[in-house]
Design a protein around this nucleic acid. Structure first.
Length: 217
DNA sequence: CCAAAGATCTACT
DNA sequence: GTAGATCTTTGGG
């Protein structure tokens, strides 16, 4: 099995609600300074819109020092500090200036288990499924911190590649986003169904049907 | 200026 | 299930 091609700028330049589900099954490739590669298959993401109507989006009130890379060119990272402790990583979408991005919530580790475990500081007796089943854990497992804010994923030490060739199409579920208090009714979370590697179970998984977008909680 | 909330995670009861 | 860590951003006086 080989990895698909590195995703190009045109992929990220589309509406983030189209990009988000297309990222499920894609491969995150992190090449460490030593040349060692960490691979994770994306299984859980959330879209954050830039049109000013998404109250949970960091871009909701326009550009600030923290979120400026959200308004930059697509195909780059938006990394921010969460709760003063953790790093969370997004992929910037849509044309430059839009302020839209997709939060990476969980990956299924494919290679570099031992290194991810070391980066996470996990004891030996903790399950592999805890390696990257949350946005903060994912960033730590892939050795991504705030210094990666604005970095391109079109080439370089962090890349997003298409699904493995011959891989079956993932069964994608859609639900409300988690960990937020505003805009919880917007069904902007996309995840692989029945994957043991995703974050918390969705509040209201729709049976493959999207909840209406445009309404707020 | 001060207070509070926040796209989280871990440890402990 | 709840508390605490830790700090940036935001909103009110």
């Amino acid at each position: 099995m080989q990895l698909g091609p590195c995703l190009r700028r045109a992929f990220f330049e589309r509406p983030c609600l189209q990009v988000a589900p297309d990222l499920i099954g894609a491969i995150l490739v992190r090449t460490l300074p030593s040349g060692f590669r960490l691979l994770g298959r994306i299984v859980d993401v959330e879209a954050y819109l830039g049109d000013g109507r998404d109250p949970a989006s960091h871009s909701h009130r326009g550009p600030t020092p923290r979120n400026r890379s959200m308004f930059g060119p697509p195909g780059r990272l938006y990394a921010y500090r969460s709760y003063g402790i953790h790093t969370c990583v997004n992929l910037v979408c849509e044309p430059e200036g839009s302020g839209a991005a997709v939060l990476l919530r969980a990956v299924e580790p494919l290679a570099g288990f031992a290194e991810m475990r070391r980066l996470r500081g996990l004891p030996r007796d903790r399950a592999d499924r805890l390696l990257a089943n949350g946005p903060g854990k994912l960033a730590q497992a892939l050795d991504l911190d705030l210094s990666w804010d604005g970095a391109s994923v079109l080439r370089g030490p962090v890349q997003v590649r298409g699904p493995r060739t011959g891989a079956p199409r993932p069964d994608i579920g859609r639900s409300g986003r988690v960990g937020i208090s505003k805009g919880t009714r917007l069904a902007y979370r996309f995840f692989e169904r029945r994957s043991p590697w995703t974050g918390p179970a969705p509040r209201a998984t729709t049976a493959g049907r999207a909840a209406p977008a445009g309404a707020d909680s």
